[in-house]
Design a protein around this nucleic acid. Structure first.
Lengths: 247, 247
DNA sequence: CGTTATTTTGACGAATCGTCACTTATAAAA
DNA sequence: TTTTATAAGTGACGATTCGTCAAAATAACG
C-alpha cells in the first residue's frame, strides 16, 4: 500500500506549492516565462510529479485561474457587506473588482487567458467544472445585491430585464473597462488620458443611472462613498496597493 | 542593384498572401494551430522569406490584428452613415462591432491576444506603431458621432465627462459584453441564458439612457431600428452571417 | 526480510522556433 | 555579352520546450 494518511495532506500543499511558484515565475517573467523545465528547476519535485498533479501546462494555468476566482469571490462578499445603500454596495463590488485587478495583475490576466479555447480546452475536466462552478458563485454574489436593491425598492426591473441580465450588464461593463485600462496591457491609444478608477466609477454610474437605481449620480456624494471604500471597506488592499506602487 | 520597381508591389501582395494563409490556418485549427513550419508548408515561400517580412510569429499575429482593426474601422464608418438620429448611429456602431466579432471570430480574438504583453512586446516597432495609430482612428470614428449628437442637442455632457470619456465608456462596454458572450470563448456559466445581440442592445441602451441621450429607450421603437440595421445598413453582413450559421 | 503497490525520477523523442551560411535572381557596369 | 554587386530566398541546424515512460525509490504489509 502507498502512503495514504500521511500523504493526503502534503499532496494538497504540494499542489499549492507548485502553483505558487508558477505564479511567481509568471509575475517575474510574463506568462511566456513559465516553462515546465524552469518550473521543475525551481521546485523540489521532478517533472513527472508535476504531471501527476496537472495534466499539462494549461491545467496549471486553469488551476491558478480558479484560485483567483475564489479570492475574487471572497472580496466580492466583503464588498457586499458595505454599510450603505444597495447602490453603494453594487458599486463597491465593481470597485473590488478593480482593486483585485490592480493588486494581482498576473492573476487577473490569467482569468482572461484561461477563457481562451487554446488553454481552456486542454485543461482537465476536473478543473474545467470547478471553473464553471466558481464563476457561477461569483455571479450569485452580484445577484444577491441586486435582489436586495429590488426588495428595498431602490430600483425596478424595466424593459423585461431579469436580475441575471442586470448582474451580467454590470459585470461585463466592469470587465471591459478594467481590461482596456489595465496596466498589464500595453497602453491603448486611449490609455494615456484615462484613469482606471475614475472611468470605472463613471461607467458604473452611467449604467446605474440608466437602470434608475437610486440614489442617482447627481443626488449623492459619490466621492465620499469612494473615500469610505478606501478607509473602511478595503483599508488593507489600499495599503498593499500603495506599497506596490512605490516599489 | 536589386529589383526595385518590379518587386515593390509583389512584396506587398506576398505579405498579404502569408497573412491570409496564417489566418486560414488559425481559423481551422485555432491560434495554437499556427506554426511557422506548417505555414511554410502551405505557402510557396520558404521560412527565411517569411522571416524577411515578419520578425517573429507574434509579428504575424500583430499584422493580422492591424488588418482587422482597419476592417473594423471601415465598418464603423459605414455604421455612422446610418440615416437616423445620433443615438441610432452610435447604437449602429455597437451593432457593427458585434457583427464583426461574429463574422470574423478568429480576428476578433486576435485583437485581444495581440494586446497581451507576451505577444505585443515581441512584435516589431513598425507594427506596434501602426497598431496604436489604427486604434486611435477607430476611437475617432466614435468621437465623430458623439460630437454630432452634441451639436444636434440629443444629449449633453454631464458630470465633467469629456467626449473621449463618453466614447470610451461605450466602447469598453461593448467590448466587455461581446467578449464575455462570444462563441469563441468557452461558455461562461452565464452564457447559457444570454443572447449576444439582445444583451448588447440592452447594455448600450442602459448606458445611453444614463447619458440622457435622446430618444430614451422607452420613447422609441428600437426593435424597428435594429430591423433597419439588418435590412438597410448591413444586409451583406447579415447574409454572410446566416450562411456561416447554416454551415 | 521479501513482496507488492505506489510514487518519483529524469532521460528521451517529437515538435517548434529562429538563425545563418549558402544559393539563386536581378540589374547595372564593363 | 559578360561580369559583378547586391538583394532575396533557402532549408539544414542548434536550441528550447513539452509530455512520456521504463526504471528506481519508497512505503505498507505479511
Amino acid at each position: 500500500m502507498p502512503p495514504e494518511t500521511i500523504n493526503r495532506c502534503p499532496l494538497k500543499t504540494r499542489e499549492e506549492e507548485i502553483m505558487d511558484k508558477a505564479l511567481e515565475m509568471m509575475t517575474a517573467q510574463g506568462v511566456a516565462g513559465l516553462t515546465i523545465d524552469k518550473l521543475v528547476a525551481n521546485v523540489p519535485y521532478s517533472k513527472g510529479t508535476i504531471y501527476n498533479h496537472f495534466t499539462c501546462k494549461e491545467d496549471i494555468l486553469t488551476g491558478l485561474c480558479n484560485r483567483s476566482v475564489q479570492n475574487l469571490y471572497d472580496l466580492f462578499c466583503h464588498a457586499a457587506s458595505f454599510n450603505g445603500s444597495s447602490r453603494e454596495k453594487i458599486l463597491a463590488i465593481g470597485y473590488a473588482y478593480m482593486l483585485y485587478s490592480l493588486l494581482h495583475p498576473t492573476e487577473f490576466m490569467l482569468v482572461i487567458s484561461a477563457k481562451t479555447p487554446s488553454i481552456f480546452e486542454k485543461a482537465s475536466d476536473k478543473r474545467r467544472e470547478q471553473h464553471l462552478a466558481l464563476e457561477h458563485k461569483l455571479l450569485d454574489s452580484i445577484l444577491h445585491v441586486i435582489s436586495e436593491g429590488l426588495t428595498e425598492g431602490d430600483f425596478k426591473l424595466q424593459n423585461h430585464l431579469s436580475p441575471a441580465q442586470v448582474a451580467f450588464a454590470l459585470w461585463s461593463m466592469c470587465f471591459g473597462t478594467i481590461l482596456l485600462l489595465h496596466e498589464s496591457l500595453d497602453r491603448c491609444s486611449v490609455r494615456t488620458e484615462m484613469k482606471l478608477e475614475r472611468e470605472l466609477i463613471n461607467h458604473a454610474n452611467l449604467m446605474l443611472d440608466g437602470l434608475n437605481w437610486q440614489p442617482y449620480t447627481q443626488a449623492h456624494d459619490w466621492n465620499e462613498t469612494i473615500k469610505q471604500y478606501k478607509t473602511d471597506l478595503f483599508p488593507n488592499e489600499i495599503r498593499q496597493l500603495k506599497q506596490l506602487q512605490t516599489t
